[in-house]
């Protein structure tokens, strides 16, 4: 009896969790298919009375959402790849080195996370302006790399700490150099950590709004969050149907990508788990 009750409790908890996570998504899709009047309904219904595709048409035709989507994909992907490439060696050094310099640097990186980004925006803007990188996607990628590296570094450092030192010692006994050992021993074991860093970075960059708003003035270079904000007016008003449609289109590819990455993540994470 208690076993059945336990299973029921687990199933019920999972059900609530799915509702909690999936509810807003269902609502978003439903809203994207409703007419403007249905969206304004006093007692909104979960499903639209009549499916309308006008919101999708408006989002596609009038907002340049596809172009912004491509911009977001490029900027997020490049930022993520660059960060993943840049953080491996420092993460290894911070995890393994016990020197005062390393400790000091690692503390400084941690402290740098305390400053609110809004305080840094004007100095950063002026610096980028001197480098002629304002209104440039390359400049924005540079900013994203800079602001995301500290967290990624700390995150990956914790994965390095979990790798047994004995593996490195064995590689060294076999005559491996540090670079060779990182490439052949550490990197494969860090793959789950890299996937986590990639997911965090990609999501951060994909959703980032403020830096993109300030650094990109050219509409052709705008990212998705900038385009989505243009569906909103003042005083709580907005073109909510078109906004919902644009958001649905924006998240579908991201969901697919995360589905693939998540699978890879689980595969790698569990690899070797049952070996003696």
């Amino acid at each position: 009896m208690s076993r059945i009750l336990g299973k029921f409790t687990i199933a019920f908890t999972v059900f609530l969790f799915v509702i909690f996570l999936g509810g807003p998504l269902v609502w978003l899709v439903s809203m994207s298919l409703k007419s403007p009047i249905e969206i304004l309904a006093y007692e909104p219904k979960l499903l639209p009375n009549e499916i309308q595709l006008g919101n999708y048409q408006e989002a596609l035709e009038k907002s340049g959402i596809i172009h912004a989507f491509i911009n977001s994909v490029v900027i997020s992907t490049v930022s993520t790849l660059v960060i993943c490439l840049l953080v491996v060696v420092p993460a290894y050094v911070f995890a393994r080195s016990k020197g005062i310099l390393t400790k000091g640097m690692s503390l400084w990186i941690l402290i740098s996370q305390v400053f609110p980004l809004s305080l840094l925006i004007i100095p950063m803007f002026l610096s980028m302006q001197r480098l002629n990188l304002v209104n440039s996607q390359f400049g924005l990628i540079l900013i994203y790399v800079i602001i995301n590296i500290p967290f990624s570094l700390w995150l990956l450092r914790s994965f390095v700490l979990n790798i047994p030192k004995e593996l490195e010692e064995a590689a060294r006994i076999d005559g491996a150099t540090t670079a060779y050992m990182i490439r052949t021993v550490i990197l494969p074991l860090l793959l789950p950590g890299m996937v986590v860093v990639a997911i965090f970075t990609f999501v951060n960059v994909w959703n980032e709004f403020f830096f993109a708003l300030v650094f990109l003035s050219d509409p052709e270079k705008a990212t998705l969050p900038l385009k989505l904000a243009q569906f909103l007016g003042s005083e709580g008003r907005g073109r909510f149907g078109a906004l919902a449609a644009a958001t649905v289109m924006a998240i579908i590819p991201a969901l697919v990508m995360f589905g693939i990455i998540q699978r890879k993540f689980s595969d790698n994470f569990l690899a070797g788990a049952v070996k003696g």
Binding site: F209, F210, L213, V214, S217, D218, P219, A222, A229, Q230, L232, G233, S234
Partner: peptide
């Protein structure tokens, strides 16, 4: 050249 903005963030921009 027309640059789209939005009411909530134009001040910061």
């Amino acid at each position: 050249k027309l640059i789209p903005g939005d009411w909530d963030n134009l001040g910061d921009q």
